[in-house]
Nucleic acid binder design. Structure first.
Lengths: 199, 199
DNA sequence: ACAAGTGCCAAACGCCCGTTAGGCTGCGTG
DNA sequence: CACGCAGCCTAACGGGCGTTTGGCACTTGT
């Protein structure tokens, strides 16, 4: 009995993350969720205030993790290419370490109430701005090609790291670091061989 | 005979695409959908057999368009880099020209019944295979770098073209062709400047 | 031993869901 | 004019939804 079992609330959030990510928020009933935990629907309300609280908390935890992962990189002095690689490492690690809540985050944030919705779009914009600034600086430093459009470049990088939630499987042969390095190598160096790259 | 009801049916499918993409499949009720068309919930059933038929048809139309766009490229003789660019052009055009049904396609296919679900995963695999083969051939032809992993490369390309459904806005300053060219330039040539690219 | 507190259950609440049934209206055709 | 028949209506069906309530069993502190 010395082993401390997770608080009931945390168990509920874990189950909710998994079920919401597998079936979707609206397609998961409170009775489904309770059944997954071996209890009755009404019993959940001793621990939570309602269904939306679960969604809000899952999305908040996910967005906070993205935020923290990249925030500490903002003022690090590093060549732009290395910094981009490091950002992708951290970004993909957050996705990979939280596949369920990341999936919920990407799929269900539209169903949040207006304030929570606004907070998510705010996060989106700040992540966007982080990558755009990184790229803009890389261009002015001469590390990145001068003809890049920072907005499109940020979209491309974000596509790569975000879309991973649809195909990455933890426990498979690839670590999050493998994925990040592979993507960074291709993005930074390009797909074309030296011979093939004419102009 | 079925031809006569087609216009109304098409209107229903259009409304359903828009509402499903905005609110999600389960969060859109048949009464919502009917209201959007100025009718009562029950009246829909003169034109369709049920709610899932709408989802199936929307997803089928979308997947067929992806299929057709890339199928005719399979046997075209073209250098791998040009062929990849053309594939991205077509792929992004399908997304951009069908934002609503593409969004439904990417978000709601998990909620399909088993057979329809299997058909979608089949499509997914075939698109995947298309890009992998294209890249594998490009490597053996010397157009692409020899150290590329075709699987990871396909993921990267698919990330770029698929994720567009989350941010692209038709009618904005960017045409689908602009997006495809921009992404193809960055992917093929890499982000690094000539000076910065040391090995 | 007893009171307080915790965690859960069983039942019910009002509401909305997808879907069906039956009837009314207005049109095109014999 | 009579007919059939789309196309839509209103009303209702059984059922599942999120949530609330009251009470029972068990643990804990004194």
């Amino acid at each position: 009995m010395t082993e401390t079992t997770k608080p009931r609330r945390a168990q509920i959030l874990d189950s909710a993350s998994r079920l919401f990510s597998e079936r979707g928020y609206h397609a998961t009933s409170m009775r489904d969720l309770a059944g997954d935990l071996g209890m009755q629907g009404g019993s959940l309300y001793a621990h939570i205030s309602g269904k939306e609280e679960l969604l809000i908390e899952i999305v908040n935890v996910a967005s906070r993790q993205f935020d923290e992962a990249l925030f500490t990189l903002r003022d690090v002095q590093l060549p732009a290419d290395e910094k981009l690689r490091e950002a992708m490492h951290r970004h993909i690690r957050v996705v990979a370490d939280n596949m369920d809540s990341a999936t919920v985050f990407f799929h269900e944030w539209k169903h949040l109430s207006p304030e929570a919705y606004a907070r998510v779009t705010g996060w989106r914009d700040s992540i966007d701005a982080f990558y755009r600034e990184l790229i803009t600086r890389g261009i002015s430093e001469g590390t990145f090609r001068a003809d890049l459009d920072p907005r499109m470049t940020a979209y491309l990088v974000l596509s790569a790291v975000n879309w991973a939630y649809t195909w990455y499987r933890p426990g498979g042969p690839l670590t999050p670091g493998d994925v990040a390095d592979s993507f960074a190598d291709m993005l930074l160096g390009g797909l074309r061989s030296e011979i093939g790259s004419t102009a």
